[in-house]
């Protein structure tokens, strides 16, 4: 797993997928069997006794038992899923005391990252195995900051500050994408998340200064 968030996502997603497939396959299989079994085979299939006819309101039929059974089964399955969700949601919402706070600014169309020492960049560099807390804002319209491989995202809204956090578990380059439609350049509002070895990161971070931005931030521009 590449990050704490994908570690949270994957098992929960798998649970949903497998239970979903199980329920879906069973129900649709029964459905198809029933259709096949009771299909109209001409004179071989007798007309049922309670056939609804014009001029008479059809009889009520159906036993509460079958409602109760299917409801009970669903409640069991959904409780599983709800439990799984509630078990992780607090973790996702409450960041531990972080070691690196970065402010993320979304704008039409790009991302700007501001480090605690006011260094600004358009790619996000973070150390492996350390808690990264992102404070996400937008300069113009609604965007959504997401790291594709990390299975996490958070809206960047004008006038509000939203928070997400993660712990990178592997070094390498990952894709930062905008997940909220934000205009003509939406598809191109991408950048990289670069996870570095902690020592390497410290080395890099100690050298950068606000003035020395290696990728100077461009103002909002329309392609």
């Amino acid at each position: 797993m590449v990050s704490s968030t994908s570690e949270i996502f994957q098992p929960l997603f798998d649970l949903f997928v497998w239970l979903g497939i199980l329920v879906g396959v069973v129900v649709i299989a029964i459905f198809l069997i029933v259709i096949f079994k009771y299909r109209d085979r001409g004179s071989k299939t007798p007309e049922p006794e309670d056939t609804p006819i014009l001029g008479k309101v059809p009889e009520e039929r159906g036993h509460p038992r079958s409602v109760v059974i299917s409801l009970a089964l669903s409640i069991v399955i959904l409780t599983f899923l709800l439990n799984g969700t509630f078990a992780v949601i607090d973790t996702l919402n409450t960041p531990p005391s972080g070691t690196l706070n970065v402010q993320v600014n979304g704008f039409q169309w790009g991302w700007k990252f501001v480090y605690p020492n006011n260094y600004e960049d358009t790619v996000l560099r973070v150390p492996k195995d350390e808690t990264v807390i992102l404070k996400i804002v937008s300069n113009d319209v609604a965007h959504s900051f997401g790291v594709l491989e990390y299975k996490t995202k958070m809206d960047a809204l004008p006038g509000r500050t939203n928070t997400i956090w993660f712990i990178p578990k592997d070094t390498g380059e990952y894709n930062i994408v905008c997940f909220e439609f934000c205009g003509v350049g939406h598809a191109y509002m991408k950048t990289k998340l670069i996870v570095m070895d902690p020592a390497e990161f410290q080395d890099w971070y100690s050298k950068v200064k606000p003035a020395e931005a290696e990728h100077p931030v461009q103002g909002a521009s329309r392609p």
């Binding site: 996502f9 929960l12 329920v23 992780v88 996702l92 996490t152 997400i164 997940f179």
Partner: peptide, 23 residues
């Protein structure tokens, strides 16, 4: 609709939404 309904439960989970929303 059965398929649509089952996948709707996924999107009801706030935790999965962090990954699935906007996709």
């Amino acid at each position: 609709f059965i398929v649509g309904g089952i996948t709707g439960v996924f999107l009801g989970s706030v935790a999965l939404d962090y990954a699935l929303r906007g996709t």
